[in-house]
Design a protein around this nucleic acid. Structure first.
Lengths: 234, 234
DNA sequence: ACCAGAAATGTGGGATCGCAGTTATATGTC
DNA sequence: GACATATAACTGCGATCCCACATTTCTGGT
């Protein structure tokens, strides 16, 4: 399958968790969707590059049909766009869209975290700490891809503890649009000088302090905002 | 074209407004997407009914391909779901999803309105008053469809004055999931006993009072919440 | 060497067909 | 008539083919 080559599996997206007991039949276009989705969130796909249904189909060893389906879904989420007919690409970032996205994140994610707070079990807490440790390692190694994967994993294992699938889904679409660009930013400035706001968040969870958690997540997101000032919008 | 039969055109969705000057070529699957989207937001499609690509294709006089594309996009936005394989349907509402959706609306829409506040021109204001008048007429006549159309129009001509396409897009996907169900609720209880929170919002805009506007929009949404208590979740 | 204009290549979108599976209907058995 | 079974109709998914168009490459005239 297409996912086989991408290594370790991400946690299931909210879209996948249905009624439970519903064994998900491996529908081709769905797995391609997940594959591309993961590539974008973790920054393996960079803005401005053109995607082609035939190219991806060839690369994945399928016909262009399931690829079209997957790209259709991504287009609906704003992750890809049809530019100047007969061209599909990841929309380039610009300052307006960046602040727009970031403000949406600031609106949704702290709330998602706070809503999750009452449902954080000790087991979940342990899991979060492990992810955070792996995240630190990635940061020290300057491994941008691994950093972005762990970062995604951290935020969403936290968020998904809440019972708000719709809210989490909205956040995912934001990350989908964010990922490709953040990859460029991190690739340019490295991950070494990022402060780890996750620790603060974990402490807030331990203390059961909703307000502190809200601030920690907002701070984590705002850090990304800080990078924008130093970026030249080529 | 498919849209031809649906009468008066809604304002363009945020997806359409691109770089300006980009004349959107009428791609078939896009017009079908807009058509279905409009049907859902205005409640012409009711939850639980099964959609079929072949059925819709026949109805619209096209092949099933563009319909598949359109449904793919809607599926990505959570507006339709693939239940028990080989069945596409509008997902039925339940109390959890309802409150989830409503809380998301409470998070996003007041903010969208406040952000729009500085950009409301007198012309826009006039437009909003006209829509509100039409909305009142629809309410008095008990015309549920017209009411939902005008309500959509009111909120989004307001929101779209802001420069936050991403934010507005998120709100649209919420309405997309909301519409079919609200239709059922309104159809059951009528629109006569709805209070018109829009007047309050318009006054707040006139006064330039962001906080009052925030509260008015939140109140408008919360009114929908009030309906949930009286609903039997068949 | 330069720059039209023409041919070739590649693109996304749509139509059509077939497959495997589900669901509804009809048939058979007691 | 009730129920189990077989059959028919219908479904979404994927593959393949074709088209109109955009873009690139080639070519010929100056």
């Amino acid at each position: 399958m297409a996912n086989a080559s991408t290594g370790k599996k991400l946690a299931a997206t909210t879209a996948e968790v249905e009624d439970l007991e519903t064994v998900v039949e491996p529908v081709l276009h769905a797995s391609i969707y997940e594959d591309l989705r993961r590539r974008m969130i973790t920054g393996k796909i960079v803005p401005g590059v053109g995607l082609s249904t035939r190219g991806l189909a060839l690369e994945l060893g399928v016909s262009q049909m399931p690829v079209r389906d997957a790209l259709s879904r991504l287009a609906a989420e704003g992750a890809v766009a049809i530019r100047s007919k007969r061209k599909i690409e990841v929309p380039p970032m610009n300052p307006e869209r960046f602040t727009d996205l970031l403000n949406c994140r600031l609106l949704l994610e702290p709330e998602a975290a706070v809503q999750a707070l009452p449902h954080i079990t000790p087991a979940k807490m342990k899991q979060l700490r492990e992810i955070d440790a792996a995240l630190d390692t990635a940061m020290e190694n300057g491994d941008v891809i691994a950093y972005m994967e762990r970062n995604f994993e951290f935020h969403f294992t936290l968020y998904r503890a809440n019972n708000r699938p719709t809210l989490n889904r909205l956040i995912e679409t934001l990350w989908l649009q964010f990922g490709p660009f953040m990859r460029v930013v991190y690739g340019r400035y490295g991950t070494a000088n990022l402060v780890d706001q996750h620790r603060v968040a974990l402490d807030a969870i331990d203390a059961g302090d909703a307000e502190a958690l809200h601030k920690a997540i907002a701070g984590d997101i705002a850090d990304g905002m800080g990078l924008i000032g130093r970026t030249s919008w080529a």
